[in-house]
Design a protein around this nucleic acid. Structure first.
Lengths: 198, 198
DNA sequence: GCGGCTATTGTGGATATCCGCAGAGTCGGC
DNA sequence: GCCGACTCTGCGGATATCCACAATAGCCGC
């Protein structure tokens, strides 16, 4: 289980939520403002976000926007005592995970947070696989990448040789280097890797 | 542009919406109840749905559920004068396209409907490609399908022959039949077809 | 300048794939 | 019973792919 980040400018609420989640064995971190969380956020911050909408300074919605533009993919649950439908709809359409009104039912909120944390874990697992892939892709040279793209496009070696204006033999060399670096044995496996198939 | 299906038990609202959308050149069909629309719905019904939540008889939400279980993929916009946040959040999380409160702004509603119609058109375009694929897949025999799966899994012919307990030559025959029926020339192309790559 | 990386090409041989020609057995429909 | 399908198999040859061995050349850093 990873951390639930609670951003709310009301210390009493942060404390109450802190107790609630710690009693359910959900690790919690509290932040008194959108600014403070934004400052401490790093691309490798994991878990989920419980975000109050109305706060002094930056609002929860604005924090959400800023995080999105920074590439943050953590699931976000909005919490608000002033929630209205257009705001909820807008937040969800932008990609928020959930939207809960105060006063909330403790068990329900816990369920939603756990759901969001599970989603985050799954998402990171998926991305971990992609990270290894990206690392292997990074070891390819330009030429190898070109050849790889044509191989994955279904071209035969002779056609690739034509298109790149080099000999078939050279294509074979690059091709085998690609297979080795990408740790596959056939063009089909490589295609599956790059198109993200099971 | 395809049809906007308006489901609302208030004739005055249906009429008003009908005028609004017809003036914007959006074809409209009106339904006085969830039941009436559900009855007339067919898997090839296209466009988008504008659904009132509170109605005599079946509610808009229930209609949505029923349509989903029938495999309906039309984008749905909920319209309600009694909307509250939990309902909106629930509807959107179930896959509704949008959620609008009455009273609404005419231009905004039109924009959202047009957005939903465009989404529906794109979605059907994507599915059209898949339909041709499905048709070709249907022409394969059991054996050809088995061979195809192993080919796409990256196995060599000799391995496939082993796994199926048949000779390599037979695998080659099935393989070439698969290529012919699926209209591809290489295993890589076939893999791309089946994994839905660009 | 030497060593390492990249890109290039060739020869030749082992494997794999693609295909036409030929034949055979099963099963279901007319 | 014959015909059409699906399945199975072998032979041989044309292509394609995989790979070890061998070599040339430019670029970059130590």
């Amino acid at each position: 289980m990873t951390t639930l980040h609670i951003v709310d400018d009301d210390e009493a609420i942060r404390d109450a939520l802190g107790w609630l989640f710690q009693s359910r064995n959900v690790p919690v971190a509290g932040w008194p403002s959108a600014e403070s969380f934004l400052e401490s956020w790093r691309p490798d911050t994991v878990g989920c976000l419980l975000l109050d909408i109305r706060m002094e300074g930056m609002s929860g919605l604005e924090l959400f926007d800023r995080l999105l533009s920074k590439g943050c993919r953590m699931p976000v649950i909005f919490l608000t005592g002033h929630g209205d439908v257009p705001i909820a709809v807008g937040a969800l359409k932008k990609g928020a995970r959930d939207f809960v009104e105060k006063p909330f039912n403790d068990n329900e909120l816990v369920d939603r947070v756990i759901d969001a944390l599970a989603f985050d874990a799954e998402q990171r697992e998926r991305e971990a696989g992609q990270a290894g892939l990206a690392a292997r892709l990074a070891t390819l040279t330009q030429r190898e990448r070109q050849v790889m793209e044509l191989v994955v496009a279904g071209r035969l070696n002779k056609v690739i040789a034509d298109e790149l204006g080099i000999s078939m033999r050279t294509v074979e060399v690059h091709r085998s280097h690609v297979f080795e670096k990408m740790r596959v044995k056939t063009a089909v496996e490589l295609t599956r890797l790059l198109t993200g198939a099971a």
